[in-house]
C-alpha cells in the first residue's frame, strides 16, 4: 500500500490555483517535495495533514481520507512551516501538555516528553520556548510531532532558517526516524537538503508535478536532454573556444580565467575530447564537476529556468 495516493488533486484559493490536477503515489521511506515558493508544496502538505480539503480529486493518506479525520491525525506527526508553539512554556511543559492531549497517562507522558526532547537534542533546556533560536524551535516542532508515535511524519520546510550545523543534525534525526520505520514526507526549496535525504523525489511547480521517482531515475530522464559540467582548467577561454569550434557544446560560459561552465547534448563526445585536449593541446584540466546529479540543475532544467 502506498503511504500517499493522490489522484487528480486540485485546490483553489479563490482564483489562485494551489494544486492543479496533481496525481502522485508516495511509497515508504523518505519522500521529498521540491519546488520553488508557490509550487504547491505547502498546499499539498496541508492537504496531507487534513488541515484543508481538496476542491477536486481524491486523496488517501495511509489508506484514509485526511480532512477532519482524527483517527488518521493520531497516526501522523505534523511539523508545520510556521512557529505554532506556546512561547511562554518551557519545552518539557509544552511537550507534556501535547502528550496529555494525545492521550498519554501522567507518568507515560513525562517519560515520552523527555524521550522526544532527547531525540532532538534538547534535554535539559529549561528556558521558555520564546527565547529559543530558530533551529531549536524547529527541533521542538519535530519533538511534538513524535509524541504520538506517528506512522507518517510530515515536515514542511524543516530546514528554513537553520544554520548548517543544525541542518546536519536535523537530517541525522530524520534519517534515523526513517530507519526506525517512520515514513517521512518532507518539503523544501533547498534542493541540496532533499537530495541528501530523500529516497523518492517529487518535483513541483505551479501546482503541478513535473517529475517523480528515485533521484537516480530522474537523473537518467534528464540526461537524455542536456548535461552540464563545471571545468576547472588552466585556460578556460582557450578550452571554451576549442569545445565550441568542435561543436561539442551548446552553451559555454567562461566564469573566470580558471573556471568554465559548459552544457552539452552529447556528453560522451565531450568526455572523449577532453583527454585529447590535455594531451594534444597542453590544456591542463584540474577538475571536472558534472552537475547532473545535483537536484538544482535537474529542477532548473525541467522547469525551464
Amino acid at each position: 500500500m502506498s503511504v500517499v495516493e493522490a489522484e487528480s488533486l486540485s485546490k483553489w484559493y479563490g482564483e489562485i490555483i494551489g494544486l492543479n490536477s496533481f496525481t502522485a503515489k508516495m511509497g515508504h521511506g523518505i519522500t521529498g517535495l521540491v519546488g520553488p515558493n508557490g509550487a504547491g508544496k505547502t498546499t499539498l502538505i496541508r492537504l496531507l495533514s487534513g488541515m484543508i480539503k481538496q476542491g477536486k480529486g481524491d486523496l488517501k493518506v495511509l489508506g484514509m481520507r485526511p480532512f477532519n479525520n482524527p483517527e488518521l491525525s493520531s497516526m501522523i506527526g505534523y511539523c508545520p512551516d510556521h512557529e505554532n508553539l506556546y512561547f511562554r512554556m518551557k519545552p518539557l511543559t509544552f511537550l507534556h501538555y501535547m502528550a496529555r492531549l494525545n492521550g498519554l497517562g501522567t507518568e507515560e507522558c513525562r517519560k515520552r516528553s523527555e524521550r522526544c526532547l532527547s531525540i532532538v537534542g534538547l534535554s535539559g533546556e529549561n528556558r521558555p520556548i520564546g527565547t529559543f533560536s530558530k533551529g531549536m524551535k524547529q527541533r521542538i516542532k519535530i519533538a511534538q510531532a513524535l509524541l504520538n508515535d506517528p506512522k507518517l511524519l510530515i515536515l514542511d520546510e524543516p530546514f528554513t532558517g537553520v544554520d548548517p550545523v543544525v541542518r546536519a543534525n536535523l537530517m541525522d534525526i530524520i534519517r534515523d526516524l526513517s530507519h526506525q520505520g517512520i515514513d517521512v514526507v518532507i518539503s523544501s526549496h533547498i534542493l541540496y537538503d532533499i537530495e541528501r535525504l530523500a529516497d523518492d523525489v517529487l518535483l513541483m511547480n505551479d501546482g503541478k508535478m513535473l517529475l517523480s521517482g528515485k533521484i537516480g531515475e530522474i537523473v537518467d530522464i534528464v540526461e537524455d536532454y542536456t548535461h552540464s559540467i563545471i571545468i576547472n582548467t588552466s585556460s578556460a577561454r582557450t578550452l571554451g573556444s576549442r569545445l565550441f569550434e568542435e561543436g561539442l557544446v551548446d552553451i559555454v560560459d567562461v566564469r573566470s580565467p580558471n573556471e568554465l561552465f559548459v552544457r552539452t547534448r552529447d556528453p560522451n563526445s565531450l568526455y572523449d575530447f577532453l583527454p585529447r585536449a590535455v594531451l594534444d593541446e597542453g590544456i591542463a584540466i584540474e577538475k571536472l564537476t558534472p552537475i547532473e546529479n545535483d537536484l538544482q540543475s535537474i529542477f532548473e532544467r525541467v522547469v525551464g529556468k
Binding site: 512561547f87 494525545n102 504520538n148
Partner: peptide, 15 residues
C-alpha cells in the same frame, strides 16, 4: 494567533 490550533488537530483531537 499563535497558530497552535493546528497542534490540537494533529493529536487525534477532534474539532
Amino acid at each position: 494567533n499563535d497558530k497552535s490550533i493546528v497542534l490540537y488537530f494533529t493529536k487525534g483531537f477532534s474539532k
